[in-house]
């Protein structure tokens, strides 16, 4: 579904992405891990078309990025940003409806199907009861759920999330991962980057890691996340313990 070949990107002289190639062909929940400044966000921005790669090719669902419009990308990939701070108090329903924009045509564009799709997405995520509330009055968790509902309403084969749980409390973090797992189980490719290797270990099917602009690991999560890889990526020593049949990563202090 997502094929990247020899992707290079420079920020000025800094070689941020070095010859990245990967081929993700299964619609499942993928995690992207890696240290700060390693190139995760740059990679996402290239995939989203926010940044134009200096060389290499990106293909999503057999569509090459060479001659693709912003609107076509928006029909292939939906994006959930890390945090959303709208200057205007749009309601939850209006924000979710925005996910239907790539399908809009004509003068005012929004059709009845679009309103229905937005309501379905909100129902799926369980935020239909706050549909008329302005997003500026919501908690961080509810705002994140709103953005995920928007991505669902966008109805794309691929969904990308940039640290979806970074601003949330513990319970909300687990909730978001459960929701992502459910979305991916319905035949969507969901890629989320995260700084918590435990979450990756508990919830995701597959993982790839980017460090210093290069792919450091790629494959099934339970095979990939080892004490050695964690040391390689994050630098210090970690121990993987087994508590109640669940692997848990703790730092060696």
């Amino acid at each position: 579904m997502l094929v990247v070949k020899n992707l290079n990107f420079y920020y000025g002289k800094h070689h941020t992405l070095k010859n990245i190639s990967l081929n993700i062909d299964s619609a499942s929940l993928w995690a992207l891990m890696g240290p700060n400044g390693g190139g995760k966000t740059t990679f996402f921005k290239c995939i989203m078309g926010f940044l134009k790669a200096d060389s290499g090719s990106i293909t999503v669902c057999d569509k090459d990025y060479k001659n693709i419009t912003t609107k076509e990308i928006a029909k292939l990939i939906s994006y959930v940003p890390q945090e959303h701070k709208p200057p205007f108090p749009f309601t939850v329903r209006e924000i979710v409806l925005m996910g239907r924009s790539p399908y809009m045509n004509g003068v005012f564009g929004l059709k009845k199907e679009d309103y229905n799709a937005a309501d379905e997405a909100m129902e799926k995520i369980g935020i239909l009861d706050i549909a008329e509330k302005p997003v500026t009055s919501l908690s961080g968790g509810q705002r994140q759920l709103t953005l995920i509902a928007r991505a669902i309403a966008q109805d794309t084969p691929v969904m990308i999330l940039d640290e979806p749980t970074s601003a949330l409390d513990f319970n909300n973090q687990i909730n978001i991962w459960k929701i992502l797992k459910e979305i991916s189980s319905k035949g969507k490719l969901v890629i989320a980057c995260s700084h918590d290797p435990n979450h990756i270990l508990w919830f995701t099917d597959n993982t790839f890691a980017i460090k210093n602009g290069e792919i450091a690991a790629f494959g099934t999560t339970c095979n990939i996340i080892t004490e050695d890889l964690l040391k390689e990526i994050y630098g210090s020593k970690y121990h993987i313990a087994n508590v109640e049949n669940k692997n848990i990563i703790c730092p060696v202090i």
Binding site: M48, F50, T70, A74, K75, P81, H84, I95, P102
Partner: peptide, 13 residues
């Protein structure tokens, strides 16, 4: 009005 990157991800230049 919600931001450049989000607008782009929703199909608007």
């Amino acid at each position: 009005s919600i931001g450049d990157e989000e607008a782009k991800s929703l199909g608007i230049n």
